[in-house]
Write a protein that binds this DNA or RNA. Sequence first.
DNA 1: CAGCATCCAGGGCGATACTG
DNA 2: CAGTATCGCCCTGGATGCTG
Lengths: 135, 135
Amino acid sequence: MSGTHTGVPSVLANELPRPVPIDDLEACPVGDLFRRLGDKWSMLLLILLGSRPHRYNELHRAIEGISQRMLTRTVRALEADGLVRREVHPTVPPSVEYSLTPLGQTLLEPLSALADWAVRHEAEMNEARSHHTSA
Amino acid sequence: MSGTHTGVPSVLANELPRPVPIDDLEACPVGDLFRRLGDKWSMLLLILLGSRPHRYNELHRAIEGISQRMLTRTVRALEADGLVRREVHPTVPPSVEYSLTPLGQTLLEPLSALADWAVRHEAEMNEARSHHTSA
DNA sequence: CAGCATCCAGGGCGATACTG
DNA sequence: CAGTATCGCCCTGGATGCTG
């Protein structure tokens, strides 16, 4: 299983959204994806763009905790990954519109499932955190 | 902000995994969840624990890019969030087993969907990245 | 084996200021 | 409006050593 990613969980090769028996995350695309989405802003941005295209400052205001630097940086990274499209309108007051590419749209689905989970289990997480027994 | 999270996407209140019309992420649990999972290791750890319980050093080896510090730190955070269970076996060579809580199990589903997406679209992302035209 | 403590380096990241 | 440039903090994360 240390060869190429031949050892990639066969489950994933199927089409089920069930428990993933992964053991070597670095060797498989799963680790790769999570490395890219595993930052403070990427998933947030994707979800936001999933609702509708946004302009730079719209994103900036919507996220609100993000700095211009990280907004630009993150959105550019997503663009490089083919998930986000950056469209520049050469108007007088320049406007740039960000939207999901078709590929990004497909990613939106599992991402929305995650967002959905968040809403459903918000209470449980908060409660668990308050228990936080001992340490 | 528009009141409490009354503005929380009604879509999420339903039961569909489709585009999420979010506009104020900080005011809703979605932003909260993504803030917690939006780090370098949390999702990786959850996926890994989703396949089966792991012991400390098993996790350390499986992730391999993680330091002891961050492993302990991340796993503890997930424990505090009620997603991971930490079980100490008072054997002579002490062994600690980490596993998903029932809540964590439910989170595993959307997470697996994400992992599944990674496998399916690996090629597309890599290609997009190679194009990466201009900038 | 599991894990904490400390030191230390690098870079992630934000704040501010400036430009086209 | 949509960025870029610069600065600096602090978190991430590695190495090492110690404890139970």
